[in-house]
Amino acid sequence: MKSALSQIRPAIVSTLVFAVICCGLYPLAVTGIARTAFAKQADGSLITDKHGTVIGSSLLGQNFCGDRYFHPRPSAAGANGYDAASSGGSNLGPTSRKLADQIKERVAAYRSINGLAENQPVPADAVTASGSGLDPHISPANAMLQASRVAKARGLALPTVESLIVRNTDKAAFGLIGEDGVNVLKLNLALDSLSTDGR
């Protein structure tokens, strides 16, 4: 017991010392360096419109429903999806009836919106919710299947839309690590800046 009491001072003092160094000096040093070297990233890679209003982050997905836009993945973040202050997945398991019902509904909707045949397989990412509910990407296959719908709604040539898809694809690192993903928000903004015909 005596030996335990003698350890109380070092325990309390070291906690305070570590708090000052690891929780004060260290994060401030990181913040200082980050703001100097990578200010845009440190602030959340925010995208602003021509008036300077923040309209999103290139790293975070947003919901799109209209025909004129590419649609992101289903999202389980927040009550309406894509809530960037409440990230999360569905956490529904492989034998969940709720998940199977959701997927069935999404498959049917995806085929009908994009004019696919009744038996055409649908890309998995188009009908499943991501882990974060904020996935900024869709798979290139998913984007290509949506291309003709978007081209038609905007009166654009299909190759124009397809080349925008390629230009807004975030590549795997060194062509090896990770997967290619089409950034939906960037792609849709690129489409908007292309067709200035208004809505």
Binding site: G89, S90, P121, V122, A124, V127, T128, G131, I138, G178
Partner: peptide, 22 residues
């Protein structure tokens, strides 16, 4: 179960996964 509903077999199980990680 999901393949039978029309999900592409080649894509694997993407529920709860991010596209950039696959």
């Amino acid at each position: 179960v999901h393949h039978a509903l029309g999900v592409s077999v080649a894509d694997g199980n993407m529920e709860g996964k991010e596209v950039r990680f696959g």
